[in-house]
Amino acid sequence: MNLIKEPKGVDFIIQSPPLTEQDRKEISEFIASRKSKKNIVKRIPKEKILVKK
């Protein structure tokens, strides 16, 4: 695996602006909603699964 080297005179330092309180709240709500949806999974009973031989 090769490493990416910085060209001379160029810095790859990325600094994001700080999040506002509203942004933090929206992100937290989004993550919570995704986690709650993730736990709801449709399960198919084994009797309905047909296996081809």
Rank of each mutant, 00 (worst) to 15 (best):
residue 1 M to F: 02
residue 1 M to T: 04
residue 2 N to Q: 12
residue 3 L to D: 07
residue 4 I to H: 05
residue 5 K to A: 01
residue 5 K to D: 03
residue 5 K to R: 09
residue 6 E to Y: 01
residue 6 E to W: 03
residue 6 E to A: 15
residue 8 K to A: 15
residue 8 K to N: 12
residue 8 K to D: 15
residue 10 V to M: 04
residue 10 V to D: 01
residue 10 V to W: 03
residue 11 D to F: 07
residue 12 F to M: 05
residue 13 I to L: 12
residue 13 I to Q: 08
residue 13 I to R: 11
residue 14 I to S: 13
residue 14 I to W: 14
residue 15 Q to A: 05
residue 16 S to E: 13
residue 16 S to W: 07
residue 16 S to K: 12
residue 17 P to M: 04
residue 17 P to F: 01
residue 17 P to W: 04
residue 17 P to G: 07
residue 17 P to V: 00
residue 17 P to E: 04
residue 19 L to W: 15
residue 19 L to M: 15
residue 20 T to F: 02
residue 21 E to L: 09
residue 21 E to G: 02
residue 21 E to Y: 04
residue 22 Q to T: 08
residue 22 Q to Y: 04
residue 22 Q to V: 04
residue 23 D to R: 07
residue 23 D to K: 08
residue 23 D to P: 00
residue 23 D to H: 08
residue 24 R to G: 12
residue 24 R to W: 11
residue 25 K to L: 14
residue 25 K to R: 10
residue 25 K to T: 14
residue 26 E to T: 08
residue 28 S to V: 06
residue 28 S to D: 14
residue 28 S to H: 10
residue 28 S to M: 15
residue 28 S to A: 15
residue 29 E to S: 02
residue 29 E to L: 11
residue 30 F to K: 01
residue 30 F to Y: 05
residue 31 I to A: 06
residue 31 I to K: 03
residue 33 S to R: 06
residue 34 R to N: 05
residue 35 K to E: 14
residue 35 K to S: 07
residue 36 S to P: 01
residue 36 S to N: 06
residue 37 K to W: 09
residue 38 K to H: 04
residue 38 K to C: 11
residue 38 K to R: 08
residue 38 K to T: 04
residue 38 K to I: 10
residue 39 N to R: 07
residue 39 N to C: 09
residue 40 I to E: 07
residue 41 V to C: 02
residue 42 K to H: 13
residue 42 K to T: 13
residue 43 R to Q: 13
residue 44 I to M: 03
residue 44 I to E: 05
residue 46 K to D: 14
residue 46 K to Q: 13
residue 46 K to A: 15
residue 47 E to Q: 10
residue 47 E to S: 08
residue 48 K to W: 06
residue 49 I to A: 02
residue 49 I to L: 12
residue 49 I to N: 03
residue 49 I to T: 08
residue 49 I to M: 06
residue 50 L to H: 02
residue 51 V to M: 06
residue 51 V to W: 04
residue 51 V to A: 07
residue 51 V to T: 13
residue 51 V to K: 11
residue 51 V to F: 05
residue 52 K to N: 11
residue 52 K to D: 14
residue 52 K to A: 12
residue 53 K to W: 00
residue 53 K to V: 11
residue 53 K to S: 10
residue 53 K to R: 09
residue 53 K to N: 05
